[in-house]
Design a protein around this nucleic acid. Structure first.
Lengths: 348, 348
DNA sequence: GTGAAAGCGCTAACAC
DNA sequence: GTGTTAGCGCTTTCAC
């Protein structure tokens, strides 16, 4: 029952523990015959060296912590998948920390990850998406990053120069807005996210800029920031439809809200895209799961995770690497957007 | 830059390391004044004891490994969330291992988790869903479970008596089949999964049984096992529709395939549920994301994960606990199923 | 090629 | 109450 150790192996093989260690790590030449003898006993007992003891000496654990706000939002599993595939190839295992966007939980996990001596941390969501993150929250991360490599994905921290991997959110929103304008839409709303979130505000800013450039009016009442979930998407679309004048097209902050918006619109008897166009953001699996399939902005989620780990790996190995990796998003036109119709014609 | 240790704290506080350890763990009375002095220095350096060294002694790491076949399938994040919430409350952190259903990768991760001395393992998917798991694969897990507590979720291993948490899949399939029969359907197909998977075969068996009990014909060509993804759902529904005679209702092995089936049917011009009824399985977020919303079988995913961790926790603490926790699934009737129409009447 | 011994950072007897 | 010391299981000089 007792855990078997290098000593047990050594004793049975009539060698010293150092020799066992040598065959284990191939760190110095060992006579072929002894090596075989040792290996046989290792196999016999299925001996696996204790990674804890090893890490205590090597100061490397082969683990990475990944902090996400909601693993239930398909965007994050997709990023995770990219990260994990890359990490596995490099010999890392992941601690997955779901914070539910709660800053306190983030702090907790940060502390745990540090205690557990992870080799690096990938940080998504929560405080790094705040338009104005409190100095205290920010400092906690920047301080930690002096001790453990940290890579932020799609976020940033004030007064810091963290390593970051991100999509150009503004560019994505620009693409989406242009697309709608080119389809002849003039009355375009923006739905979802939160005022305080940088990911939201960056998109809104781009949307407003493009609208102005095109000489189109931006109506404050058509910009609603009230959540990121499917449910909130429904609610916000409901609000929009309830107004005296409603837009002919809607930009959503992510696929979740877009799906909600689409559902609500259809339930209220609107046709998509004939009566109202909707565009999402993220290009998660969800966007092709529904009917009509969502026109959305692809973020290269998998690549985002993969790059984050690559950067982290370089940091861990103390290699020079770029501070910022920026991905250019692309618009994926599917079925939820269509040309503007003055009076929605009866179709089919 | 050097990592600060209990010795550094002890020296600066003019006490011994044991005293530091005592205030750290509150494991023996310490004079209030010394305790304060020590605490001050700990705070000053933001000292956090090395969990590795701790675990080396305590033989507990406060980590659990969770093995899933595909974190991208919404079923698993939902289970994870339940597991994580429960685990966090009990002081555990999760290693998340995505195996992509690859048995070799499972073995790899099993080995890594053992090396890293996790306190327990939650196993989902892959080999534990095989109708006939090879002795070698099975043994690997049963052997491991003698050293580390393992809980299987929605699966089993031959010739073993593993701890398990599961939904009664047969009961779920029964519910779904009965529902369709009660709606007047006689021609019911079964789509998705794999022949070799127990989760599939249990459902199919129940479906066949209920059909026979109701005196309804089971047509072999209407039972198609070719995948678990949205894409495969589309393909299988495509096959079905291409047949000379097609069923009026379809049972799907999970929500993913059901979504695919619904999409394909609609694209082929069928109305749901007027022309064909579709039932999913799992009750993931996806089932309410689409239109029509999916009638499906709820598995209590969150609860499944939560229970798994509870059982695991008891095993870790060497408490007695039940071998099998069985959840009764429930049918959730939504919009994708409706009464049978001989000739689909024009509706709306 | 191989072994003895020190030490990674901590906890836990055991003394005092 | 507090300090000394021996490990936990491993790697790594440093001898031989």
């Amino acid at each position: 029952m007792k855990n078997i150790t290098v000593y047990d192996i050594a004793r049975e093989a009539n060698v010293s523990v150092s020799t066992v260690s040598r065959v284990l790590n191939d760190t110095a030449p060992v006579k072929a015959s002894t090596r075989e003898k040792v290996n046989k006993i290792i196999k016999k007992y299925q001996f696996q060296p204790n990674a804890l003891a090893r890490s205590l000496i090597s100061k490397a654990t082969g683990t990475i912590g990944i902090i996400v706000p909601d693993i239930t939002n398909p965007f994050f599993p997709e990023v995770f998948k990219g990260a994990e595939t890359e990490a596995r190839a490099k010999g890392y295992t992941f601690f997955l920390c779901d914070t539910e966007g709660d800053y306190e939980r983030e702090s907790e996990y940060l502390s745990i990850l540090k205690e557990k001596r992870v080799d690096g941390i990938v940080f998504l969501g929560g405080r790094i998406n705040l338009a104005r993150c409190s100095p205290k929250l920010a400092e906690e991360v920047t301080e930690l990053s002096k001790q453990i490599p940290v890579v932020l994905v799609n976020g940033n921290l004030p007064k810091s120069s963290m390593y970051r991997v991100m999509t150009d959110e503004a560019a994505g929103a620009e693409l989406a807005t242009r697309h709608l304008i080119e389809m002849g839409h003039r009355d375009i709303a923006f739905l979802g996210g939160y005022d305080a979130m940088s990911t939201t505000s960056q998109k809104v800013k781009a949307y407003k800029r493009i609208m102005k450039e095109a000489g189109l009016p931006v109506r404050p009442e058509w910009i609603i920031h009230d959540g990121l979930s499917i449910e909130s998407g429904k609610a916000m679309m409901g609000q929009l439809i309830g107004m005296k004048e409603r837009p002919s097209a809607v930009l959503c902050v992510n696929d979740f809200t877009a799906v909600g918006a689409v559902k609500e619109a259809i339930e209220r008897g609107l046709r998509i895209p004939e009566d109202i166009s909707v565009v999402g953001y993220d290009d998660t699996h969800l966007s092709t799961a529904i009917i009509p399939e969502l026109t959305t902005v692809t973020q290269h989620t998998y690549e985002l995770g993969k790059q984050a780990v690559q950067i982290l790996h370089q940091l861990i190995n103390r290699e020079e690497t770029r501070k910022l990796t920026l991905f250019q998003p692309e618009l994926v036109v599917r079925q939820s957007t269509g040309p503007y119709h003055e009076l929605a014609p009866k179709v089919e």
